[in-house]
Nucleic acid binder design. Structure first.
Lengths: 155, 155
DNA sequence: ACTTTGTTTGACTAATGTTGACTATTATTA
DNA sequence: TAATAATAGTCAACATTAGTCAAACAAAGT
């Protein structure tokens, strides 16, 4: 039997619920209590077992009536393309290279023209207007990767 | 599932009314009594859920016959609203406020759902993952303004 | 055995919501 | 016009959640 540690058990518990419904909304402290672990262990489970690569989106809110919501999403077919693009980007990318990435997305029909232009607006040199080139390229990389990760699934 | 805290409930109550008519006029104390909260909680709800970023304008009057009036505004009809939206962004904006703005763009059919999610991905806290909060909010502001200006001159 | 990777824990931090005392404004009444 | 009543606004303390991070511990590789 594999999966005997408590994180695996919590993971199974939640995925069983998610097999029935599209999403779960939990109270971190309640789940923690239910499995007799500290609350932050729930964060660990989220971070290691409910990632976007696995097809899950996790959202949360603090304060009174706070929650953690896990949503199961359908991963698309182009995931491999997206992965390799993300790899290409790394942690820094120029505007010219960014344009090429968006072009690729458009050519592969991952995004349409309007969406492509929207992305370009967000990674535009003038938009980012960073203090220095390194910072600008760094944020451009993060934004593009965030968008690519988003394109993994249909919402 | 969602909306366990009383502020969310009050928000929903008011938005239900606003779905029918363009505006509501309430008595702060009456609403407070209706939901069994202190009057100032109504101000909290206004400040966090009925801002211009959310697409609402709140006006009020004190004294006898005082009121709080919530008005739904339309981005398309009102060019000034877009401008004031950009103005409220300034050079820094939180993820929460950013979400409110994108939601408003969607509600006003300036963008569709897919585009809205694309924008949200680009201004997401995790996407930006800046060294500090100020930097994160600063770049979020630049991106949003860049996108808003793009949308303005696009259609 | 040693090293690397994964898990568990708890102290500290951050975000959001609730409450009430005090203040400000407007209308009504003396 | 001055006093009073009837509203709404502000602000800071407190309450209620979730998040981060690094240390301790455990398991798996080499």
């Amino acid at each position: 039997m594999q999966g005997q540690n408590i994180s695996d058990i919590i993971e199974k518990y939640l995925k069983k619920i998610l097999a029935e419904s599209e999403q779960v909304e939990i109270s971190r402290s309640e789940i923690a209590q239910l499995f007799n672990v500290v609350p932050s262990q729930i964060n660990y489970v989220m971070k290691t077992r409910f990632t976007i690569q696995n097809g899950y989106i996790v959202e949360s809110k603090r304060g009174g009536g706070g929650y953690i919501r896990i949503e199961k999403v359908n991963l698309l077919d182009d995931v491999d393309v997206l992965d390799s693009l993300i790899e290409t980007i790394g942690d820094s990318i120029s505007q010219r290279e960014g344009l090429a990435i968006v072009q690729t997305l458009y050519n592969n029909e991952v995004v349409n023209r309007r969406e492509a232009n929207l992305i370009l607006a967000s990674i535009d040199k003038q938009t980012l207007a960073a203090d220095n080139r390194m910072q600008e390229n760094s944020f451009r990389a993060r934004i593009l990767i965030g968008i690519l990760n988003h394109l993994r699934y249909e919402s």
